[in-house]
Amino acid sequence: MALLEVSNLTKIFGGVRAVQNVSFAVEAGIVYSVIGPNGAGKTTLFNLITGIYVPSEGQIRLDGRDIAGVAPHELARFGMARTFQNLQVCMNMTALENVMVGAHLRLDRNLFKGALRFPSIARRDAALREEAAELMRLVGLEAFIDAHADAMPYGALKRLEIARALAAKPRVLFLDEPAAGLNPKETSEVDILVRKVADSGVTVVLVEHDMKMVMNISDQILVLDYGRKLAEGSAAEVRRNPDVIAAYLGTHQ
């Protein structure tokens, strides 16, 4: 059984069919990429799988369990984590706190214990601080460990989102254009980071426009166009696919 199975997934906004009848499966432990032109429905697909949008039709299975329409905070319990194409960093917090929030489900969240600062909470928080700082170093943000989120540049915030997602210790990580807006050096750092994450056993589902990165690290690629599945296969297969070539060269009917 695949880790994630999507079948006949459709999402309609008013008249727009953002995702149409898309089916695919993601095996555990691989890097699975979703590519396609802007507006192809990649982000919508992520939003459907991670519970932000409710599908108009179709099923989504995680470990064989139907999760279509399940709320995002419930899905987090099943080991899903993600980043956003349009930054969703909490600008009212420090960088480190943003990462610490990622560990939400692994903490004792009791209001009263927190207000009275129970020793158990204080101890766990101190350890978490170390853990979060370690994650920030992992994503190359050691310079920002003491920074406030609203004082950080765009490229750093993109990686901060990755650190926050990793703090949840996910089984599946969804990355929506993690390298968009980054310079070539930062892009290659993200490339290396994604590999590291994948090597540690986390399944990665990636949306990315940087083709070099996608072709290099993906085990499997799904191509979307106008909300439909255009092709699926290994990097080599996808590259040879005439429909994909046509779509990318703009000769699509």
Binding site: M80, V89, N92, M93, E97, M100, H104, G114, I121
Partner: peptide
């Protein structure tokens, strides 16, 4: 505390706080 950070996080970004649980 973890409770308070979750509270501030949902102010900062409701979706981001939802997806971390």
């Amino acid at each position: 505390s973890p409770f308070g950070r979750a509270l501030r996080a949902l102010h900062g970004s409701e979706v981001a706080s939802q997806v971390v649980g």
